[in-house]
Design a protein around this nucleic acid. Structure first.
Lengths: 216, 216
DNA sequence: CGTTTCAGTGAACAAATGTTCACACAAAGG
DNA sequence: CCTTTGTGTGAACATTTGTTCACTGAAACG
């Protein structure tokens, strides 16, 4: 047996990407301990990742670049969310409640990424803020297109639909931040927040359905 | 003439409160330079305030306490906003557009406080986050009560009205953050954002008007 | 096999951070 | 008027930070 530890025979690039992920995960882990990304230090992250500080520079020029990578990761998570929702098909009954169920499931499955996105949307460095906003806008666009092909709210102009989806996405992200901030194991309060969240989405879609494009 | 500099004959308490305000203003000023509150250092703040670092402890135990004071200040500003809106009376025509005009005026007049609230809502330390949420919730409650006395959306239960106002407030704060993040002197993009903001509020109120309490 | 490439190491640095302490000195209060 | 009170000072501290540099050793490659 030449190679004893089976998880150790990896190509160089694989190894590199591995510690890169370790760094990103370390940042997310530290954030889930309460500190916001902006308050994180380079050394802190490498320490948590189990790497020497200098190794950081092999992957990112500075913390901002790490942040941007995390934004991108968050973006693909959001895309997977949409795909998953599509795959489930339209329930035709209780669409909103079901979509919210999928969503909250996703938030619970990837708490750190949602915490990051919600927190840095208006908090972090200018570059990161901008990236988060861009990602949220992309997400809203995809959602708008989905609604189009599902023939939901067909009477709305594309511009209006886009704005409505922006409102929905904004509400979604805020709700995620609120839910994840609850002291853990508090199912009563959590259910209340989710119910309020559903109600807000209902109001939005009700308003969008009642919208007349003529109104200035 | 015993007292030469007229701005210098102040009681001890007045002086103390003065440098306290200087510290708070310094933090806000630094934030408007791009850094988020969480990323601010104690020494950085005292330097900007023109005081020696140790003087900080005469007013706050740590940065978190400073942050909480700023949250409270932000809350006061929001209350003044509501009072101002009330004072203007109900325009009866174009209510939303007019309210938004008042609001954006306020945001432009107190950019730093809105930047702080928007940024630390989900970003900062747990204590500060909680305080911001509490203040936003208070604000939503007051708004709900105002709508009640103005006989707007009278068919909604108090609980529903509260939830709708929560949605409105959330949208307001996000919009403030977005608008203040624009590169300055970009009236085209700013007007676009404000128009979208107005449209979102219209959708919300339209939906609230169409709401039937019976729906599960 | 021999050479090159390069992810990760470890020591070292200047700079900045939060916190401490004894002190100054003007207002407050008897 | 003399004493007390307390805001702001200035020097000092132990830590922590971001960044540099020369290095090691194994994978990649010819």
């Amino acid at each position: 047996m030449s190679r004893s530890r089976p998880d150790d025979d990896l190509s160089r690039d694989q190894r590199k990407q591995r510690t890169r992920e370790a760094l990103m995960d370390a940042a997310l882990t530290l954030m889930s301990r309460g500190i916001s990304f902006t308050g994180l230090g380079l050394r802190e992250v490498t320490r948590e990742a189990g790497v020497v500080p200098t190794a950081f520079y092999r992957h990112f020029q500075d913390m901002d670049e790490l942040g941007l990578a995390l934004v991108e990761e968050g973006g693909v998570t959001l895309r997977r969310l949409l795909r998953e929702a599509r795959r489930g098909g339209v329930p035709l009954k209780d669409v909103i409640r079901n979509s919210v169920k999928i969503y909250t499931g996703f938030v619970r499955a990837h708490p750190q990424e949602f915490l990051f996105v919600a927190g840095e949307r208006s908090g972090g460095s200018p570059a990161i803020r901008a990236a988060v906003r861009r990602e949220m806008s992309h997400f809203a666009s995809e959602m708008a297109q989905d609604l189009r092909t599902l023939n939901i709210l067909p009477h709305l102009s594309t511009a209006t639909l886009q704005i409505v989806c922006g409102l929905v996405v904004n509400t979604m992200i805020s709700a995620a931040g609120d839910i994840l901030d609850l002291p853990p194991k508090q199912p009563r309060a959590e259910q209340e927040m989710i119910d309020a969240f559903v109600k807000q989405l209902r109001v939005i879609f009700l308003g969008a359905a009642a919208w007349k494009e003529s109104s200035t």
